[in-house]
């Protein structure tokens, strides 16, 4: 496990807690959290190939999309944490998802790529093209990222939704936190992690 973001998430999560991972992929994170924090919980995943991988890892995974699934399966405050890594920007209504996360869980954790990262600004602002990078690898017409935002945008949305940000970490594309990221996160940070709850 060398994903720095996963380590940060693991540090944020209390031992023996319950976790829902939205868009859990092959459940690498849930598997990691199970071994580091003895968590229990479920992964939500739409893609059958990834569901199969999750089952192989002995993780409880439910094949479902977020929108119908969250309301269908979980009562309010069912989990300690609802986590979503690199999927917020793929949602049709990121605001609704954030609200749902905080309905089913006491705290939410999200990670997403920063549209305000300086290289993205250069590509869009000077070269006049939609940015393509390690954290945003798809071309504009073939991308799941339909709701990209900057860190500032996200924080504004949280304010509107009365969501209190508890912790924030900004990383570069190799998932490490360098000096510049700390100096001006919305300019130098490529990926952000937020932990939040209802205000």
């Amino acid at each position: 496990m060398d994903r720095k973001d996963f380590k940060i998430i693991s540090n944020w999560i209390k031992k023996d807690s319950t976790v829902l991972d939205l868009g859990c992929g092959d459940s690498t994170l849930l598997d990691f959290l199970t071994s580091t924090k003895n968590i229990t919980g479920y992964g939500f995943e739409k893609d059958l190939e990834k569901v199969k991988e999750s089952i192989k890892k002995n993780i409880s995974v439910i094949q479902s999309d977020f929108y119908t699934g969250l309301g269908e399966y979980f009562e309010s405050s069912f989990f300690d944490y609802a986590v979503m890594t690199h999927a917020l920007q793929e949602n049709k209504n990121p605001d609704k998802i954030l609200k749902e996360m905080l309905r089913v869980a006491n705290e939410g954790i999200v990670t997403f790529p920063n549209m305000g990262f300086w290289k993205n600004r250069v590509e869009l602002g000077f070269l006049g093209r939609m940015p393509i990078s390690k954290s945003l690898p798809n071309k504009w017409f073939d991308t799941p990222n339909i709701h990209l935002c900057t860190f500032k945008d996200f924080e504004d949305l949280c304010k509107d939704l009365e969501i209190k940000i508890l912790e924030k970490k900004v990383l570069d594309n190799s998932y490490s936190s360098n000096f510049l990221c700390k100096l001006s996160p919305n300019f130098f940070g490529e990926i952000a992690l937020y932990r939040f709850k209802k205000d």
Binding site: Y42, L48, V51, I55, S60, V61, I62, Q63, F74
Partner: peptide, 13 residues
């Protein structure tokens, strides 16, 4: 899920 049991679910095409 409500009973907090370990369960996986797959809907096969």
């Amino acid at each position: 899920v409500k009973a907090r049991k370990k369960v996986s679910y797959s809907e096969i095409e």
